[in-house]
């Protein structure tokens, strides 16, 4: 199934990727080439096959809800572009 430039615009919006009009045309073309190739999977009948999200029989891991040492706030904030009052600062939201 092919995607249109409008679909790519929506995908870029959902993915939070700012694309130029030129980009949109390029990605539409490359995504469609990939989707054409992926269509080969249709040849294979998998109706009776269980999907495998994981390769090993692993289960959810729980731990006790106990207070533990974590990174210092200063360390955690050290990589941010903008901080203030011990928090990450972002542009106005509302």
């Amino acid at each position: 199934m092919q995607v249109s430039e409008k679909d790519v615009e929506q995908l870029a919006f959902l993915s939070r990727l700012d694309l130029t009009a030129e980009d949109k045309a390029v990605y539409t073309k490359s995504l469609n080439a990939i989707l054409d190739y992926l269509a080969m999977l249709k040849k294979l009948d998998t109706a009776a096959v269980e999907p495998a999200a994981h390769v090993l029989p692993i289960k959810n891991v729980f731990r006790e809800d106990k207070l533990r040492q974590s990174l210092d706030r200063e360390q955690v904030l050290a990589n941010a572009a903008e901080v203030g009052e011990g928090a990450f600062v972002v542009p106005r939201i509302v």
Partner: peptide
């Protein structure tokens, strides 16, 4: 990377 992100979203 952008191609992968958009394909993954799709």
């Amino acid at each position: 990377v952008k191609t992968r992100i958009m394909l993954g979203t799709h």
